[in-house]
C-alpha cells in the first residue's frame, strides 16, 4: 500500500500504460487459489466467528481481482485511453505542491484493485489468525477448569485421575503456545509467553506434589492439613495466573503497544 501511495504521487498522466496482462493474470491465479483454500477453511472450521467473518474478506479479494482484470482489459484495448487527470492540474494553484491527488480511470482501478487485494488478504489472514488464537485459548481454558478442581481432590485415586486429565491438556497448551511464540514478531509478547510457559512447566509438578502431600496428611489424621491446603491452593493460583496471562498476551496485537511505532 505504501508503494501505491508513492505511485499515486509520482504518476504522470499521458504515458501509455504497458500491457499488464501477465502480472494481472498471475494475481488472478493466486487469488483463485487463495479463495479455494479460504473456502475449504470456512467449510471445515467449527469456529462460528471465522465462518461469519472470513467470507467478507474473500469477497473483498475477489472483487478487487475483478477490478484489476477490468482495468487490464481496458488498457489492453487502448493504452492511451485512461482519463488520468489530476485534480492538481485542474484546480490547485502551482504553489501548492502537497495535495492529495485522486487519480481517475484505469490507473485508479489498477491501484484500487491492488490495494483491495492487499487489504483483503490482510483481513483474511487476520481473521484466520484470530481463529487460531481462539483455538489455543480454548485449550488454556481447559487447563484453568482442571486447576479449579485441584482443591477438591482428597484421595490418591482422584489425584491419579486429575493428573491423567491435566497432563495431555498441559502438553497441548505447552506445544501450541511455544509454536505461537515462535511465530510472533513482537519481542515483548514472545518474552512474556516464554516466561509464563516456563513458570507453568515448573509449577505443574510442584502442584501435583503439594496435592499428594495434602492427601497423605488427611489420610494420616489431618495434622497440618490447613497449611498443606494453603500451599496447594497457592500453587494452583500461581498456575492459574500464569495461564490467564498467557490468554491475555495471546490476544494482544502489535497495535496494542506504543513501541510498535
Amino acid at each position: 500500500v505504501d508503494r501505491l501511495v508513492i505511485l499515486h504521487e509520482e504518476a504522470e498522466d499521458g504515458n501509455a500504460m504497458p500491457d499488464l496482462s501477465r502480472p494481472v493474470q498471475a494475481v488472478s491465479n493466486a487469488v483463485a487459489n487463495l479463495i479455494k483454500v479460504g473456502r475449504d477453511t470456512i467449510n471445515s472450521s467449527d469456529d462460528p466467528i471465522l465462518r461469519q467473518d472470513m467470507p467478507g474478506s474473500l469477497h473483498r479479494v475477489e472483487g478487487a481481482s475483478r477490478l484489476l482484470e477490468d482495468a487490464c482489459a481496458m488498457l489492453k484495448a487502448d493504452p492511451y485511453s485512461q482519463p488520468a487527470r489530476y485534480v492538481r492540474d485542474l484546480f490547485v494553484p502551482h504553489h501548492q505542491t502537497s495535495f492529495s491527488l485522486p487519480i481517475f480511470g484505469n490507473r485508479k482501478k489498477l491501484i484500487d484493485g491492488a490495494r483491495g487485494i492487499l487489504q483483503g488478504t490482510s483481513a483474511l489472514l487476520l481473521c484466520f489468525d484470530e481463529s487460531e488464537v481462539r483455538k489455543i485459548i480454548r485449550e488454556c481454558k481447559k487447563v484453568l477448569d482442571y486447576l479449579a478442581v485441584a482443591e477438591v481432590i482428597e484421595t490418591m485415586e482422584d489425584l491419579v485421575q486429575f493428573v491423567k486429565d491435566l497432563s495431555p491438556c498441559l502438553t497441548k497448551v505447552s506445544r501450541e503456545v511455544d509454536s505461537r511464540q515462535k511465530e510472533l514478531t513482537h519481542q515483548v509478547h514472545r518474552d512474556i509467553l516464554i516466561r509464563c510457559l516456563d513458570q507453568v512447566k515448573t509449577l505443574a509438578p510442584i502442584l501435583i506434589c503439594s496435592m499428594k502431600i495434602f492427601i497423605q496428611i488427611i489420610a494420616q489424621g489431618g495434622k497440618g492439613a490447613e497449611e498443606a491446603a494453603e500451599n496447594r491452593n497457592y500453587l494452583a493460583g500461581r498456575m492459574t495466573d500464569e495461564i490467564t496471562e498467557i490468554i491475555r498476551v495471546l490476544q494482544l496485537t502489535t497495535y496494542d503497544e506504543d513501541e510498535w511505532e
Partner: peptide, 29 residues
Amino acid sequence: DSGEMVRQARILAQATAQLIQAIKGEADT
C-alpha cells in the same frame, strides 16, 4: 490447513507486489 492458507496468501502478496512494480515501472518512465 493453516500452512496452506499462509502459503497461498504469500504467493498472492508477491504477485501483487510484482504487479505494483509493473505499474510503477510505467510511472518511472
